[in-house]
Design a protein around this nucleic acid. Structure first.
Length: 406
DNA sequence: TCTGGGGTCCTAGGACCC
DNA sequence: TCTGGGGTCCTAGGACCC
């Protein structure tokens, strides 16, 4: 028996929330952006889309396309709160809910839909509850797997509902351009087109050996994807994160060594604090550098021991920095801690380590109470604000598994 | 007046070991 | 004197997603 999966996707989520909370924005082109000078569009309202405004565009480019667009700096608390509340709605219909991102979820209603009058009845009920409770619209896709459910919601956007039944798949995919499929981006599209494959239908008929040779493991799944097949399960239980990182594009490129080091310390503290709060330790530290010309690279180092101490992260990031011959100035810096495992909170062997840990916890407690960066090392007291806009990839526990190609 | 931030997964090649 | 094969760990880089 085939499954029945729902994909619930908010329409222009951040922009819709802003339009809902400020009536002056309703019916108008709105773009949600970050707070910095070098920010880009995170979400744009449907009114703004008509002008060709796209996610990732900078403010200048956006104004050229739509001079009267209204920019709103995003408010992450509003969005995360809404996301958590929406989760409660989904759980009325099935325990098998994967919150894929802040504005998207998958529900497996295979065994429960008959209790609620069928898949479409559930879809309509969720849409109505979200509309009533939050004043925003969403689109529901229904299909035998998440790949097709996602496609269904993409097709039906905005404020729609679409059910792709198994018997509809072949004709639907026959002439569908490759890039419409979740998991096939611009890179794969280009390479597949070079092989003469332009539609999902063609992909489904392509020789498996050809795809396997050209694309390795991914190639094995591409053919199935072209046929609308996908057996990725729902991740109902949140998985442990594999990495925790932060990066920052500066309002002005940094050229002073001490400014660069101070930013690395700040990023290290943000990571260390997050890791300590959620109880993870890691043993790989990566440093990412982007120059003004956009050349970007990262270097990493594996530590002898697992850690979540700000100072350890910082120290290793700095030693990577010292191994690089930096160009004059730096546009972006990023630090990340990976190879994460759960901190089992073992007994600390050395009194010194215990004291160090107690100090870190005291610092964290103050920061939790009074907000980030009230209590930190002197060298970053004069720092800029931490980033204020949440990434749309946010999840309730900050974890996600995005790989559909398996 | 250019181009954010936070993730996951895969691959290729080198080091090292038996 | 012309060097196999298997395995693991590590780094760098690219592709994808929201």
């Amino acid at each position: 028996m085939s499954k029945i999966i729902l994909c619930i996707d908010m329409d222009a989520f951040f922009a819709s929330v802003e339009q809902q909370s400020n009536p002056k924005l309703r019916g108008k082109p709105v773009a949600v952006i970050g707070s910095g000078k070098r920010t880009v569009i995170t979400t744009r309202s449907y009114e703004a889309r008509k002008y060709g405004v796209k996610t990732g565009m900078n403010v200048h480019e956006t104004k050229k396309l739509c001079p009267h667009i209204i920019f709103v700096v995003g408010n992450n608390e509003k969005y995360t709160h809404t996301c958590r509340e929406m989760q409660k709605i989904y759980l009325q219909f099935t325990p098998d809910v994967e919150v894929y991102s802040i504005d998207e979820a998958f529900l497996d209603i295979t065994t429960t839909h008959h209790l609620f009058g069928g898949p479409e009845a559930i879809g309509h009920s969720i849409k109505a509850q979200i509309k009533t409770q939050f004043g925003i619209t969403c689109t529901v896709g229904i299909a035998p797997n998440i790949l097709m459910a996602k496609l269904a919601s993409d097709i039906a956007k905005p404020d729609g509902l679409r059910w792709i039944k198994p018997e509809d798949i072949e004709s639907l995919l026959k002439h569908l351009p490759l890039k419409e499929l979740w998991g096939i981006g611009s890179g794969l599209t280009e390479k597949l087109e070079a092989l003469g494959i332009r539609t999902c239908g063609q992909l489904g008929r392509a020789p498996a050996s050809l795809l396997r040779n050209k694309f390795g493991v991914i190639g094995e799944h591409l053919k199935a994807m072209g046929k609308g097949l996908c057996n990725r399960p729902l991740y109902v239980r949140e998985e442990d994160p594999k990495s925790i990182g932060h990066s920052m594009t500066f309002p002005k490129d940094l050229s002073q060594r001490r400014d660069i080091e101070a930013e690395i310390l700040k990023l290290s503290e943000m990571i260390g604090r997050r890791a300590r709060r959620y109880g993870f330790i890691g043993r790989k530290v990566s440093l990412t550098v982007r120059y003004p010309d956009f050349e970007t690279f990262s270097k990493q180092t594996t530590l002898p021991d697992y850690t979540n101490h700000t100072h350890e992260i910082y120290k290793n990031a700095i030693s990577i920095l010292e191994s690089i011959r930096l160009k004059n100035s730096v546009r972006l810096l990023g630090v990340s801690l990976s190879n994460l495992i759960k901190d089992c909170n073992q007994m600390l062997l050395f009194e010194e380590k215990r004291r160090e840990k107690a100090l870190l916890q005291a610092v964290d407690a103050v920061n939790d109470k009074y907000g980030d960066f009230k209590l930190i090392w002197a060298s970053y007291l004069k720092q800029t604000e931490p980033p204020r806009v949440i990434s749309p990839a946010w999840k309730p526990s900050g974890i996600r598994n995005i790989n559909v190609r398996k």
